[in-house]
Design a protein around this nucleic acid. Structure first.
Lengths: 186, 186
DNA sequence: GTCTATAAAGCGATAGAC
DNA sequence: GTCTATCGCTTTATAGAC
């Protein structure tokens, strides 16, 4: 059996799933070594700062993904409606239609929020701002656009909570559809 | 200084705030003794089953509160519109206008969900059912009422996530107002 | 009902061999 | 880059005195 040499890059998504599942405090090193199939030695070789550095790396990874796939298209795409449409598609895929939970949402609700307050706030603020900007370009008043964007980003988070609580992914996809229609069917 | 003899009943709300703040895994016995001002001996005298029994007691307490203050009025009040109106008022107060987070929501997102899956599912299902029943009595089709109720209960959870993430209680109250108006201004 | 002492296990993190 | 052994601390839970 070939020995697999891991790279830091490859470990980050695995860590993401672990933090998503157990939260920061619940993500024990035992669970981390199990989930990554790496020994403590390797983990600390990649992340000398320990769990804190692991979580930072995961948060940066998530931030970058959303910036590239969601926020920037919302702001820069010539066709604002298409950008909003794409947001719902990408978000639906990212959260695996409700089977996967939002790491930043988990951190926001838990006591992790204090530790990563800036990252948590920055993520949601950037999302709301980007969506509001797109809504303005579809012809809405800035104030109404901001309120609507807040409602929708919150609605997505709530849909993730409900889908997981009820163990029904359809709840997530149905709410997502409803939110999208409210934005695009004017 | 007078010695205060505690009763189990008095401890449960304190435990609720601790679980709300730290989650199940994060609520260490050190934090619990600090938050309740009780020694381990007293805690285990009231809850021989340990943390699991404490969490069960808190969940039952929350369940009962919502059943009495929210679910039953939604179902039984003669004036359905007044019942829905009261739900938003009570919920706004209960969550301290967004400063307090939903324990069941915290448990739903974290790994606590597996442990308390039935309680978590039951809480949200009861809420959605009660709200849907009230909406039917305002003249909506059952199917549309169920969809709308799901959207609103999810929206409230999302509003709590956002308010905490952005550290802005106005986000919670604004979203709550928007949801209420969508239900009542037909 | 409350307290302190204590046990046994798990925790994050480090050291050093390979 | 990976591993094992180990440190020191915290964890949940129990026992027994008061």
């Amino acid at each position: 059996m070939a020995r697999v040499i891991a790279e830091r890059e490859d470990v980050i998504p695995l860590l993401g799933e672990i933090f998503r599942t157990y939260g920061f405090e619940g993500a024990s090193l035992a669970r981390i070594t199990e989930g990554t199939k790496l020994g403590k030695g390797s983990i600390y070789h990649f992340f000398p700062g320990g769990k804190e550095e692991m979580a930072e790396a995961v948060l940066t990874h998530v931030d970058d993904w959303f910036k590239h796939h969601v926020f920037e298209p919302l702001i820069a795409r010539a066709d604002a409606v298409a950008g909003i449409q794409a947001m719902f598609d990408d978000v639906g895929r990212y959260f695996l239609s409700g089977r996967r939970v939002c790491l930043i949402g988990v951190f926001a609700l838990g006591s992790e929020r204090d530790r990563f307050a800036d990252r948590v706030r920055g993520y949601f603020a950037a999302w709301i701002d980007a969506l509001a900007a797109a809504l303005v370009r579809t012809g809405r008043e800035p104030q109404q656009a901001a309120a609507l964007a807040t409602e929708v980003v919150g609605g997505i988070q709530g849909a993730l909570v409900l889908a997981r609580a009820l163990d029904q992914t359809e709840v997530f996809t149905a709410i997502l559809r409803g939110l999208r229609d409210r934005l695009l069917v004017a």
